[in-house]
């Protein structure tokens, strides 16, 4: 019984259960959904979101937010896409893309962590600059005619119906999760997000941990941008728009608290699968894709409101327990006197 209770407290697990419940319900309504092909498709299509959401997860776990990931993704995709189109070396293009992502992350980290600007506002500014820079770089034109081999690589299956990207992404998330939870440095992130002053008192540099989180976030978005090129095959001037909001939503769905310190990247990854599957699942349930945004919004609001109410009730109960324990102690103390 206690084991079950403890398991239910693992926040990622409840989002995983939610995802499984979603799949089961859709399969009951429409039995043709229940095939490994369809479920794999849900995972395959979430790769780009997953990378962005995991990156965002870092920023959120340290208690900040990064709304420039969408345009970061778009900008990197534009640069890498046009380099590939012009026949540059693939590795060089990827390296440039990732360096750009890291530089953007460093800039955000500088502004938010070192200068102490509120993160939402600073990254909103970065978002605007990058979005504009994307237009300037591409001249407003689409980036097309990417090498066929590069595009075809996105549909190579590795395990069953899962693509190479999807498997790579899952392995990456697993590795990051282990690094975050099992290594000393990895746990700094949660510590800083949970209580920055406390972290500083025990000798962790909150400033540099946040900068590192932003750089990781930038690099993950850049990776997502490169995979975006490969999967979609063309980049418009609005590519990557709105990814930041979906990534935040994925983090919240995956049990990461926006006040920092709670949650894991696995949760973010599961949340991103939920987010990107919704439109796919709606089709199987016989709704038009017009319901997409409304249902996403409802799920998001319902989940955060329930979570918040449950947390509040828990904190009230804890306080009552502490209070009754203390009064019991004083009564005993009084009796012994």
């Amino acid at each position: 019984m206690t084991a079950i209770k403890r398991l239910l407290k693992v926040r990622e697990l409840s989002s995983l259960l939610f995802l499984i419940a979603l799949f089961v319900i859709v399969s009951i309504i429409n039995p043709s959904f229940a095939s490994s092909e369809n479920i794999s498709a849900c995972f395959n299509s979430s790769v780009v979101y997953m990378l962005v959401a995991v990156g965002m997860g870092f920023a959120v776990i340290v208690g900040e937010i990064d709304v420039s990931v969408g345009s970061n993704l778009g900008f990197v995709a534009t640069v890498v896409g046009s380099m590939l189109r012009d026949g540059e070396n693939w590795l060089l293009a990827f390296a440039v893309g990732i360096l750009i992502g890291a530089a953007i992350g460093l800039f955000n980290g500088w502004g938010v962590s070192i200068m102490g600007v509120p993160s939402l506002i600073f990254t909103l500014g970065t978002n605007g600059i990058l979005r504009g820079a994307m237009y300037v770089y591409s001249g407003g034109a689409w980036v097309e005619n990417l090498p066929k081999a590069f595009k075809d690589f996105s549909s190579v299956n590795l395990v069953g119906d899962l693509t190479v990207y999807c498997c790579g992404c899952i392995i990456l998330v697993a590795v990051i999760h282990l690094l975050l939870t099992k290594t000393r440095r990895g746990r700094y992130f949660t510590a800083v997000g949970d209580n920055p002053n406390g972290a500083v008192l025990v000798g962790i540099s909150a400033v540099w941990t946040k900068v590192a989180a932003y750089i990781i976030c930038g690099v993950m978005s850049a990776l997502a941008g490169i995979i975006f090129c490969s999967r979609i095959g063309f980049i418009t001037s609005t590519s990557g728009n709105g990814y930041e909001m979906k990534a935040v939503a994925a983090c919240v769905l995956g049990g990461i608290s926006l006040s920092g310190g709670v949650g894991s990247v696995v949760g973010a990854a599961i949340g991103s699968v939920i987010m990107s599957s919704i439109s796919y699942l709606l089709v199987f349930m016989g709704f038009s894709s017009n319901y997409d945004n409304a249902i996403t919004g409802i799920i998001l609001i319902v989940i955060v409101v329930t979570d918040s109410l449950m947390q509040y009730r828990q904190s009230v109960r804890n306080r009552h327990e502490r209070l009754s324990a203390r009064t019991a102690g004083t009564v005993e103390g009084g009796a012994s006197k």
Binding site: I65, L120, M245, V248, A249, V252, L258, N290, Y291, D292, N293, A294, I295, T296, G297, I298, L300, I301, V304, V305
Partner: peptide, 14 residues
Amino acid sequence: MVITLGGSFLYSGI
């Protein structure tokens, strides 16, 4: 932030 984010999805969806 979270609620108005959800709201922006919900109301544009509606």
